[in-house]
Design a protein around this nucleic acid. Sequence first.
DNA 1: CGGGATCCCACCCGATACTG
DNA 2: CAGTATCGGGTGGGATCCCG
Lengths: 111, 111
Amino acid sequence: MELTEYHLVEKSICPVARTAQILGGKWTILIIRDLAAGVKRFNQLERSLQGISPKTLSERLRSLEEEGIVIRQTFAEAPPRVEYLLTEKGCDLVSVIDSMRAYGKQWLCNK
Amino acid sequence: MELTEYHLVEKSICPVARTAQILGGKWTILIIRDLAAGVKRFNQLERSLQGISPKTLSERLRSLEEEGIVIRQTFAEAPPRVEYLLTEKGCDLVSVIDSMRAYGKQWLCNK
DNA sequence: CGGGATCCCACCCGATACTG
DNA sequence: CAGTATCGGGTGGGATCCCG
C-alpha cells in the first residue's frame, strides 16, 4: 500500500478520530459484529451481510487484516477453505459496538 | 434534500449501522465532542477543529441539525451571532465517543 | 462574523463477469 | 469456494472566492 501524505497526517490524530476512521465505511462494523459471534468463512459473511458485494467484502477484510483486527486463516484443501476471526484488538471493539447499538436502539430505531 | 432510494433503504437498517452512519465522516464526531464541552460559535468550532473548511463545517452542522443532534441558535445582532449546542439526543452520543476514545487510547495511539 | 457558490478530486461502494 | 478484474457512480471533503 502506498503511503500518501493523507495517510501520514491521518495517523497522528486523536484516539476518537482514529477509531472512527477504522469503523468508518458502510460495512466495517457489521463485519466485526458478525465475526464477534464466532469464526466465519467468506461465503458465510457474504450471506449474513445481505447485499454486500464480494469485492467490497474482500476489500474490507483485507484492510481489517492490515489493521490487525482480523486474522485470515487459509487451509490447503479442496475445496479451498478460508476462515476469518477477530484478534484481541478486534474483540475489544465489541464494547464500542455495544455502545453504538445501545444508542441506536434508544434514538434511531423505535422497535 | 432529495430522498433517493439509497436513503430510504439505509434508514431501516440495524441500530449499530444507523449509529455508524451518523458518526461516519471525518469531522462529525469531533464536532460533537467539541460541542459536548459547551456551547460554541461557528468560528470557535472552525478554530478548535484545526484544518476543517468552512464549507464542510457548515454541511456537517446542517446535517446534524436535521438529525436532531445539534441546535442552531441565531441572534439578530450586529455582528451576527450564531451558537451551536447539543440536544439530549446529541449529549447521549458522549458515551459512544467515550468508548471510542478508550479503545483508541489503548490500541491506536500509544501515548 | 457566518456562511454560500463553485469546481474538483479521492474514496467507497455496487454490478457484473471471470478464475484457480 | 474464495476471491480478482473492470467499470462506473455517488458522496464527502478541500480550495478558493464571494456576500450580507
